[in-house]
């Protein structure tokens, strides 16, 4: 009986270990499989047209076999950069305020707010965008700048995106500023600097790599966001000439055309290429930003 248990235990042990290892291999293989899979699907189009031409051509006419991604890439860049311009300063100011100027309980109180913002699904942000930000842009912001807008515009997408990436960037920045030792602040103060001068000259400089990577991660998050942006950005295939015009970012392109693409094989291929572009850009930004964080940690 005892021996039986022993064998049983051994088998179970081996099984557990095998399962763990197998899972680990699956997980590690995932990014490779993702990348290769998307590449294989887009290869058909790439054989026909060069990558450079696909990326920088303005002609998007699937029925004629023209798949220029440039309008979508430009829209994505507009929306993403604008979102970061809005969210970046807000996060930086808020992170400094919460880590440098308030009592500890304030940060504890704000944590649920940040967490809930981070947890709200993207489709709900989209609904909020439609009922709140779209009218705001068309009725107030556009007239203020003396233009007209339907409200479904690059700016609307950027505002919604900004709100979505705020909790994400803010959490990283709070961590970055909290990890700076108080003694550095004390050293600067004891040299006669005011609190603000200390923040400006010492803390922000010390946190600089962290700030850059927080923003980088924010960019990569914004670049791939789909549904919320799709719902408010207008989805007109054109190179937008201003922030009050509609745009058509890459993720929206993929999401909007999933039904039709099967009938034309090259169309399918073009959409998978967009997904591949998205995947590569996001991975690169993520990679660079995380490397910067790791370097920062090593230095302090």
């Amino acid at each position: 009986m005892k021996r039986f248990f022993k064998i049983n235990r051994k088998i179970r042990n081996t099984f557990h270990k095998r399962w763990m290892l197998l899972s680990l291999i699956v997980v590690i293989a995932m990014p490779i499989v993702l990348g290769v899979g998307l590449y294989l699907k887009s290869a058909m189009l790439l054989e026909q047209t060069s990558l450079i031409k696909l990326l920088f051509s303005k002609e998007w006419k699937p029925m004629q076999g023209l798949f220029g991604l440039w309008p979508f890439i430009v829209s994505s860049l507009w929306v993403t950069i604008l979102a970061l311009l809005i969210a970046g300063p807000i996060c930086l100011l808020a992170a400094i305020y919460m880590t440098q100027y308030t009592k500890k309980y304030f940060l504890r109180m704000m944590h649920p707010v940040i967490d809930i913002l981070a947890g709200i699904p993207s489709v709900v942000y989209g609904v909020w965008g439609v009922i709140f930000v779209v009218p705001l842009v068309s009725n107030h912001l556009a007239p203020f700048f003396n233009t007209q807008s339907s409200g479904y515009s690059i700016l609307t997408g950027a505002i919604v995106l900004a709100v979505m990436i705020i909790p994400f960037i803010l959490n990283i920045l709070i961590e970055v500023f909290r990890n700076i030792p108080d003694q550095l602040t004390e050293a600067s103060l004891s040299l006669g600097a005011t609190h603000w001068e200390t923040v400006k000259h010492v803390l922000v400089r010390k946190a600089f790599p962290g700030i850059v990577s927080a923003f980088g991660l924010g960019i990569s998050r914004a670049f791939g966001e789909t549904i919320a942006v799709l719902m408010v950005v207008g989805n007109v295939t054109q190179i937008p000439k201003g922030i009050f015009q509609p745009g058509y970012p890459l993720p929206a392109l993929i999401a909007n055309n999933y039904g039709e693409m099967l009938s034309i094989p090259l169309y399918d291929s073009a959409l998978m290429l967009s997904a591949l572009v998205l995947f590569v850009v996001v991975l690169l930004f993520n990679f660079a930003s995380r490397m910067a964080i790791i370097k920062l940690e090593r230095h302090t």
């Binding site: 003694q183 004390e186 040299l191 400089r205």
Partner: peptide, 28 residues
């Protein structure tokens, strides 16, 4: 700040400001 300028502080571990040697001295 006037009070603090009257006193120099040396802490347990050195905390050089995140800048050059030269600028550490000229900061104050």
């Amino acid at each position: 700040t006037d009070i603090r300028k009257k006193m120099g502080l040396l802490s347990q571990r050195p905390y050089p400001l995140p800048m050059s040697i030269y600028k550490n001295i000229t900061y104050g």
